[in-house]
Computed example of a mutant assay.
Amino acid sequence: MPNTFERLHRFFLLPFFARMSNLSLPCLILAFCLSLAACQPKQSQNSPITIAIGSWYGYYPLYYASDLGIDEKYGLSIKVLEPQNISSFRRIYVNEQVDFVGTSMIEFTNAKAFTKQDIQPVLVSDFSNGGDVVIARQNIQTPEQLKGKIIAVPSNGIGEYFMSLVFDDKEPSQHFKQFIIPETACQQAFDQNTIDACVTYPPISTHLLKNPELHKVLDTSAYPGQIYDLLWSKPHVNAQQRSAIKKVWYETVAAIEADPVAYHSYIAQLADVSVSSAEEAMLGIKLVNEQDMKDMFADVDALNKRIVAACYIAQGENCEKFANAFAPLDM
């Protein structure tokens, strides 16, 4: 039985050469090469993009965008890196070739110091909408009653920034006795009567609230849009790539809003948790869509002031350099 080349030779090349016998040999060879080239598969023109993220559901639309092929629609091929601890995360965004990074407001200010580079915010990915909570004993019923109490709050983090909003002070520890332990140690600290309250988040808060002696005093839904996460770019990223990643993000969030059940199932599988756990976690997170971003940029000064305030929590000085972190035309 003739192979593929024999068929090609018999049914195409011989008639072709017969019809074109008046052409020179170089022309015939050129025509043949061009005919073969036309049959080759086209190479992907998508630009490979590497994004490092912290382990936080607020960044998981980036995985979803790649899975749905939305990144390719805008000429990108997204690869997500998710280190499992803060030291590895920092090492990656400082030393390795990544293009975009997803962090909290506070970690963005740290990254500026660690990288010593002109890193630029691209978009707000999400904001805490009840995900961060203050769990306290029953004798504390209002935020005002937290004053002077012993509260478990990790230092230089989002919990401390949350308390700066509660007390309207960039140095919130002046208003309470700060007990520095990880959130996971709050249960034991309550049991030992070491603390009066704890700043934490699900699933830790869910577990703590099973104790009838404890309750939720307040959560971040009282401060909408004030505790947010962002996606920022390294200096080598060009304007076209920045624009493309915004389009990818907005279209992905729109897809999630259209079918949240599918997304909850997706992240549950990705994070190896139950769908109910994923749904519970997402209740406290507001993914920022295109209209949300426009609303935030309507008062870009306020957006920047929050980064300045976060910097004071993280570093305590030289924070006015973030006063123009988001430029008015970034949107």
Rank of each mutant, 00 (worst) to 15 (best):
D219W: 05
I267H: 00
R242I: 09
S233E: 12
I227S: 00
D299W: 05
L231S: 00
P224L: 02
S243W: 12
I245V: 14
A310M: 02
V308E: 08
G225W: 07
K305G: 07
A281V: 11
D301G: 10
A298V: 04
S274G: 14
A239N: 12
F297D: 09
E317F: 11
D301Q: 15
A309P: 02
A278G: 07
G316P: 00
V308D: 06
V308S: 04
Q226S: 14
L287Y: 07
L303D: 00
Q269M: 06
S277K: 15
A323Q: 09
A262Y: 00
S243L: 14
R306Y: 11
D292E: 05
I267C: 08
G316T: 04
T220R: 07
A309I: 09
A323H: 00
I313R: 04
I256N: 05
F297C: 04
Y228V: 02
A298F: 00
A278P: 00
I245F: 11
D292M: 06
F322M: 08
N289E: 01
Y263K: 09
I313Q: 06
Q269V: 07
V300Q: 09
I245W: 05
A278L: 06
I307Q: 05
E251N: 15
M296I: 13
L270T: 05
Y266A: 01
V273G: 02
I256D: 07
K247I: 01
H236R: 11
I285P: 01
L303S: 01
I285V: 15
A309M: 12
D299P: 06
Q226F: 03
L230H: 04
P235M: 08
Q269S: 14
K305F: 04
A281N: 13
A310E: 00
I245E: 05
I267Q: 04
F297H: 15
V275C: 04
K286D: 01
A309C: 10
I313A: 08
I285W: 02
Q269Y: 09
I256C: 08
S277Q: 15
D219H: 03
H264M: 07
K294A: 12
C311T: 09
G284M: 03
C311Q: 08
Q315D: 13
E251I: 06
Q241W: 10
L270G: 04
R306V: 08
Q315A: 12
V288Q: 01
K247S: 12
A271K: 12
A310H: 01
I267R: 01
I285E: 02
V248L: 10
V237Q: 05
E320A: 12
F322I: 03
A309E: 11
S277R: 15
D299T: 10
K246F: 02
P235T: 07
G316K: 05
